[in-house]
Design a protein around this nucleic acid. Sequence first.
RNA 1: GCCAGCAUGGCGGAAUGGCAGACGCGGCGGUCUCAAAAACCGUUGAGCGCAAGCUCGUGUGGGUUCGACUCCCACUGCUGGCACCA
Length: 804
Amino acid sequence: MPLDYDHRAIEAKWQQRWQETGLNEPDLWEAPRPYYNLMMFPYPSAEGLHVGNMYAFAGADVHGRFQRMQGYSVFEPMGFDAFGIHSENFALKVNRHPADLIASNVANFRQQLERLGNQFAWSKTLATTDPRYYRWTQWLFLKLWEGGLAYRARRNVKWCPTDLTVLADEQVMGDGTCERCGSQVVERELEQWFLRISAYTEKLLGNLDELDWSESTKLLQRHWIGRSEGAHIDFPIDGEAPLRVFTTRPDTVYGATFMVLAPDHPRTLDLAHPSCRDEVARYLAEAARRRIAGARQEGDSTKGIFLGRWAQHPLTGARIPLYTAEYVLSGYGTGAIMAVPAHDARDHAFAVAFQLPVVEVVSGSSGGGAHSGAGTLVNSHEFSGLTAPDPAREVVIAALAERGLGERQVTYRLRDWGISRQRYWGPPIPAIHCPRDGAVPVPEDQLPVVLPHIDDFRPLGSGESPLARSPEFYNTTCPRCGGPAKRETDVSDNFLDSAWYYLRYPSADRDDVAFDADLTRRWLPVATYIGGNEHAVLHLLYARFIAMALHDLGYVDFEEPFTRFRAHGMIIKDGAKMSKSRGNVVVPDDYVNRYGADAFRLYLLSMGPFAEGGDFRETGVNGPQRFLVHIFTLLERFLEEGSSQEPVALARLRHRCIRDVTRDTPELKYNTAIAAMMTFVKQLQATPSPLPRAALETLALLLAPFCPHAAEEIWARLGNPYSVHQQPWPEIDPQMLVQDQVVVVISINGKKRDQMSVAPGLPSSELQSRALASGRIQHLLEGRTPSKVFVVPDRQVNLVLPRD
RNA sequence: GCCAGCAUGGCGGAAUGGCAGACGCGGCGGUCUCAAAAACCGUUGAGCGCAAGCUCGUGUGGGUUCGACUCCCACUGCUGGCACCA
């Protein structure tokens, strides 16, 4: 390696200089054009910074630095998402206290992060485990509670038998396993704290249309919220209250031939006829056992049991038998359905198994199974002949509503957010249980409720947190009546920590408020947020909900916290996700040591489009490394024999490069932006004449977002004033993008046969006659005349010969 | 099963109707060297040809078009998400 490019010395020197001069610390009060550039904060694991973290941060930093050179004051904070089961489980495994582990992990991460060269504003860092931070997480909970958005309820919740804690629905994987440890999740009935995210379903869904977010992320959220439009319909039962069902296909109501209740529907046992009650009770107990064991098998809609009772069809009065079966879920709709076997596959399978009538009400059935598509209503009395599902759906809803039998209803999949965790490593939920006054909020001036340092923090498994081992912690007095009371011993989900951290950064050094109102108005919402799509339905949905809640509670003046969100891709290795078990995890430190942060950043970002990630190869870093060496060689050459004169030909190449980098960088197409710079460098290398100053200066400016240290070094060696990162982005001179020659391809029947170099902007007729004048073309035409000629100005002339 | 996204040299990728393979890795040949590494120069989709050049080629099959990696239809494979959601 030439002495000129000693990445170690260069990177250390500039990192120190930036820190001394406060280059990365915008004046939050005075900044004229605030730009909040946020990236998802990492969970500080014991393994240290992952190459995936580095990839995300490097890409986000390029964006921030680019915006800065567009004239914005960029605030780019970084912090640590340090609470949570992850850290706690690791602490249990290595038999150390999470508080000790986290302190060293954070210190290690901080050191690794500082070496990446990101423009992090370290004076505003935060860690969610800091009482100065979680005090305000607790404050947030109290505000939500005050606003009616937090409540306590006894409910069936997802329970992880390994982690011994409740999980949010979002933390249960598709196959019913725990997101953290992979154990089969079971159900358990516990008294829990919930946040009323369901109050915002409509807004969470509706606002998405207007948000400048990655489409893939929006789609995941839409799915997760799961809006279904339909109606509820009441089916009368003799001597009982009617049974309400939800359906998205009210138009098929005449095809309903039986009804099914979920086993855990509150009325299932009551509705069973006394003669069947024992048998039904046995069935329900089995179903409950299966549910608790997490063994409820999917796809089997042929199992169930008759309740020995009938409802009436609301329109025909026909007898409709009632069943209970596990294919109907208590958690969706009303937990009971009208079964339309002709037009629903599951109902059809059930009808076949129990020999129940199948009545076709939508024509177009292909015979055999259920026909769930569109068609014309038949066997539907006054509705027959209508086109289903639309507009028949509307007509049927209106008719039912008129007779008081049903009504339009929208159902969502999204459930309220259970935040109670029976674990140790989280912020205690600031509530006190008083035998007289019930659950009472901890008064604000008593925050934070400090998480006590207890030696035995192993989970109890009883449905209580390890804090229930500590009477010193939970014994207290009721703030309302002063009598003896017990603190809530559950801690909150660590997704609550991360649901508001972006609000905290600008005010991270303040102890009097969670977030300063003026600073918040200046800097928020976040201009650009960059992170992984794995958080599309967890973190990003919760953060939006919290912003909406704080908006309605009067604390912020926006509803959407992240104006622009871009999901970055994933770095894979050997075609697979990096994981410890596969042994293909890349540790960035080795590469940063060997090649420098600049070269490694460049490599990561040149692998592919930032939104798509890329495939990591060890040898790949050689390319960017050579590229930087080439630039320093050019710099050397310029310092020896450079010129202030720039030949027009070079100026054209330079402006072409500026154009390409300026076009691709804001679109996060860093790979092609880097390629454009590499092309320019090759062109400079091929230039025999003295190098112009402008070429080197432009390179330093274009490189600044990508390789901040090298760019600074080049800038300084050119004798320019500190700092390259405070310079305006280079301007494009449109004059310089005009070419004096263009290559026009001549093809016959679409196949390239010749080419010619001509002045740009020639009229089509001129291009055509020049093409026909070509010797090669004349020869190939053999005297024939093209039947047609297509001319694409400045690009192609295509001669069409009739084929034989 | 449903919903997305993707499929291009040995590899990562570029080109979104007009010269396929930019840029980079790797490979091959050379220069330098006692030698190696590094560096530098050349070369690198496949096939045919002494050559000029020709033919084939963007997962598969069809279609639209003067012209298709790009648009349309059908299929296959991979990745991610959801999944008894009525």
